[in-house]
Nucleic acid binder design. Sequence first.
DNA 1: TATAGATAGTGGTAATGACCACATTACATC
DNA 2: GATGTAATGTGGTCATTACCACTATCTATA
Lengths: 248, 248
Amino acid sequence: MSRAIDPSNIIPKYYQLANILREQIENGTWKANGTIQSERQLEQQYNLSRPTIRQAIDLLITQGYLYRIHGKGTFVSPPKLQKGILELTSFSEDMRNRGLEPGQEFLEFGLITPPKKITTRLDITDPLQKVLRIKRIRTGNDVPIGIQDSYLNLPEKKTITKEELEERGSIYVILQEKFGIYPAEADETLEVTLASEEEAALLSIPAGSPLLLNERILYSQDRKAIEFVSILYRGDRYKYYMRLTKKV
Amino acid sequence: MSRAIDPSNIIPKYYQLANILREQIENGTWKANGTIQSERQLEQQYNLSRPTIRQAIDLLITQGYLYRIHGKGTFVSPPKLQKGILELTSFSEDMRNRGLEPGQEFLEFGLITPPKKITTRLDITDPLQKVLRIKRIRTGNDVPIGIQDSYLNLPEKKTITKEELEERGSIYVILQEKFGIYPAEADETLEVTLASEEEAALLSIPAGSPLLLNERILYSQDRKAIEFVSILYRGDRYKYYMRLTKKV
DNA sequence: TATAGATAGTGGTAATGACCACATTACATC
DNA sequence: GATGTAATGTGGTCATTACCACTATCTATA
């Protein structure tokens, strides 16, 4: 049961085809490491040209759904986590993937003059420039999982209210829908630290417990640094997962 | 001084062009976030068709060197670390990037019948199948940094000797040059643990010190699991770095 | 002066056609 | 039976052509 391409649709044909194929992959139409139709067959089947077919397949390859072997065919990747950068960087999404209900408790919310460490990370030169600081305790099923401390370098005259954030749930959704800004790249580090008295109290653990510190700088589509965020995870309750794909 | 495309070369034209552009990017021909030539200009300049131009640019975009903005142009990404999966997964390369001289001390080397945990990770069903285990202490400037424990699922009748490994330095180089196997994807986790007596002794730290545990499953170009490796890093001497790029 | 519209330049999408390189299979030959 | 070769099907590369969509700028108009 394959849907068809709608030429009048504003969505590009290669994108429509990619969606159809992705759906079939997720439905288990093909088994893992099995071949899908050849490019010539898809050409016939959907009445599209080969460049368009290849463009759709290219997209699914960069998304990790398919891979090609020259002379043999196009294959379905084994069903692993397929996460984009947005999901990777969203605590809520992360929690839900682990089967936990995400929650939060605000510690700070408002415009501040950023300290040196933050101006460096966000490439801020104007000493009067302010950033939006959001510090929260993050929970999964009401158990404290981590302390998230975020510094947002928003465009002139634009800001986010606490109400918006509580309503929409995600900073990134607001950035995208309200300002047309979306994350394109991120630099990220992970290291071990020990809980200070204050951190220990916030996370309900003994001082000196090992923590996983995750720091991230987020860049928008025009490569401006838009956010510096650190998340301190309880070492006993959190495991960081990622998937790497060869770029060449 | 732009080199030219050699049509008789076995290397594809788009690949030659990508190399030329990458070189210019690294030479600093354009400033960060500046535009390169338009696609039509490149067409003229190198006497190539636009699809070929776009293919070259697409490659450099997935490699993180360039980005496009519709209606404005093609831009040079700020000079950050541009790492492929191979470099990301090689301890030696990693150390050199940090300005440390990598070293190692072998603890185990040889074919073993893998324990349950390993057969699960490597999708091994044959109970007679053996894997190559390599356990090493890894050092940077002769200071112990981590304990690396690797299990390789090699093709039938093929193996790697300790001498080869010491000579070539990297398992991945041997896999690629000797067997034509190269890493295409990896699943990776990071978590905090505390050093056992044995681990503490190997790393010259007190028992109970916090460690960063990195586990990785490597997949080859045909999506077979080829290696499971765990690296225990000294929490006080190691910080994990990565760069994420949006896939869509 | 402010605004709306036209224009030019950029990347985005798409069809058509051709040929090359790699992997597998079938078949002829030794 | 073993071996080599041809045929077939797959993805890989490339040129040509056309038109669409977004951005910035210029220009005529209110």
